[in-house]
Simulated assay, not measured.
Amino acid sequence: MSADKTDKDKRRYGMVQVGIPVGQLTKPIFGRHGFAGGAMIVDWPAIVGAAVSSYTLPIRVRFPPNERTGGTLEIKVANSAFATELQHLEPLILDRINGYFGWGAVARLKLRHGPLPPRSKPAAAPLEPKAEARLDRMLEQVEDPDLRAALERLGRHVAAKP
């Protein structure tokens, strides 16, 4: 390699961990919205809990000029009813967010109403053949196809629990 090439011009050959190039790609995008690296978006369910995260999505953090504290977190909320509940939970959510960052990064929430993007459901693990046969035997007498499908989902969920 010639001496005039910089580190950015170097190419990587062979296998590279996916997290390295993905982080380099997403950092500028998340940075424009005030999220350093996007970890807050990924960890949103862990920060605010499953119930709140199922109706909300963080959009951006806006900080006062030349500051990195006392920001405003914009959150998209799925419906007005939950927005009202979110206003009551604001002090608790702010505590959790600031605890996540380790400093007083966010001072207030700004709510935006709108539909949330669809979230993919994790695929159910296949049942063992013995459990599959047992579930089929239990459902063979159910004639209504909608009821059968609902009971099958419930049965798979229960059978998958350790």
Rank of each mutant, 00 (worst) to 15 (best):
M1S: 14
K5N: 05
K5Y: 10
K5R: 12
T6E: 03
D7F: 05
D9H: 13
G14N: 11
M15L: 03
V16I: 08
I20G: 02
P21R: 04
L25E: 05
K27D: 05
P28V: 13
I29E: 02
G31L: 07
H33N: 01
H33W: 04
G34Q: 03
G38W: 12
A39C: 07
A39H: 11
I41Y: 02
P45W: 07
V48E: 01
G49F: 04
T56L: 02
T56C: 01
P58A: 01
R60C: 06
R60N: 02
F63D: 03
F63G: 04
P64M: 10
P65L: 09
N66M: 10
E74G: 06
I75K: 01
K76V: 07
K76A: 00
A78M: 12
F82W: 05
T84Q: 04
E90V: 12
R96I: 10
Y100C: 02
G104N: 13
V106E: 01
V106A: 01
R108V: 09
L109V: 11
K110H: 06
H113Q: 02
P118F: 08
P122R: 06
A124L: 03
A125D: 07
P126L: 06
L127G: 00
E132K: 12
A133C: 08
A133W: 00
L135M: 08
D136Q: 15
D136I: 15
L139E: 04
E140V: 15
E140R: 10
Q141W: 12
E143I: 14
P145W: 09
L147N: 05
A149Q: 15
E152K: 13
G155V: 13
K161N: 05
